[in-house]
Simulated scan of single mutants.
Amino acid sequence: MDDQKLPPAKTPTRPIRVPIPMWEAYGRVCARLGTDRTPDLLDHMRERIQQHGDAQDLADLESAEQELAERRSRKGGRPRRT
């Protein structure tokens, strides 16, 4: 049997601590921009990794992008906003 880890069946959620008024305001701003919090946060994370990441961080980002692309293709999901 292969010892390689299989990815989980779906992307895990990550709780963060944010004051409720800030979270609500952020949701409204994202809605006005035609997006929601998840893709906006993912875009921010990508930018930070691309700007400040080392070789391992960039390799992990590439791996994550492949995982997201595979998940979208299975679900018929939307393409990433550019």
Rank of each mutant, 00 (worst) to 15 (best):
K75T: 05
L61M: 10
I20E: 14
K5M: 09
P39A: 04
R48A: 14
A55T: 07
R17T: 10
G76E: 00
A31H: 14
P79Y: 00
E24W: 06
D60Y: 01
E65C: 03
P15W: 02
G34T: 04
G77C: 00
L33N: 09
I20H: 12
G34Q: 01
H44G: 11
D3F: 08
I16G: 02
I49W: 04
A69M: 03
D60P: 00
Q66V: 07
S73D: 13
K75E: 13
G34K: 02
E67F: 11
G27Q: 15
Y26A: 15
A31T: 14
K75P: 00
D36E: 07
E67R: 15
T38G: 07
P8I: 01
D54E: 11
K10L: 05
H44A: 15
H44P: 00
E47I: 09
R37I: 05
P79M: 01
V18E: 08
R37M: 04
K5P: 12
L68M: 04
R48T: 12
E65Y: 03
P8S: 03
D2C: 07
R37N: 01
R81Y: 01
T35N: 05
G53R: 01
G34P: 01
E70N: 07
S73W: 06
L6Q: 15
T13W: 11
R74L: 07
R72Q: 05
E67T: 10
V29R: 13
P12F: 01
A9V: 04
G53Y: 00
Q50W: 03
G27K: 14
M45A: 15
R28L: 10
G27I: 09
H44F: 13
D43A: 14
G53Q: 02
A25M: 12
R78A: 07
R14S: 08
R72D: 05
P39Y: 01
L6V: 14
M1V: 04
I20A: 15
D54A: 08
L68I: 03
P21L: 04
I49C: 11
T11H: 05
R71A: 08
D36N: 11
P21Y: 03
A69Y: 06
R17H: 06
D54T: 05
Q50K: 04
G76Y: 01
P79D: 04
M22C: 06
L58S: 09
M22T: 13
A55C: 03
Y26W: 14
P39G: 04
L58K: 15
A55K: 09
I16L: 12
L41Q: 01
E24S: 06
G34F: 04
R71T: 02
G27F: 09
R71S: 01
K10R: 14
Y26L: 15
W23I: 11
L42W: 02
P39N: 04
P79Q: 03
R78E: 08
Y26D: 07
R81Q: 08
A25K: 13
S63E: 10
R46W: 06
R28W: 06
H52N: 13
R17F: 06
T82H: 06
D40V: 10
V29T: 13
K5I: 08
L42Q: 08
K75G: 05
Q51L: 12
K5W: 09
I49L: 10
P39I: 05
M45W: 13
R78D: 05
Q4V: 12
T82D: 07
R81W: 02
L41N: 01
L42P: 00
R37V: 03
E70Q: 09
D3K: 10
H52D: 13
D43K: 05
G77A: 00
R72G: 02
I16S: 03
K75I: 01
T35W: 02
T38R: 08
W23G: 13
L68Y: 05
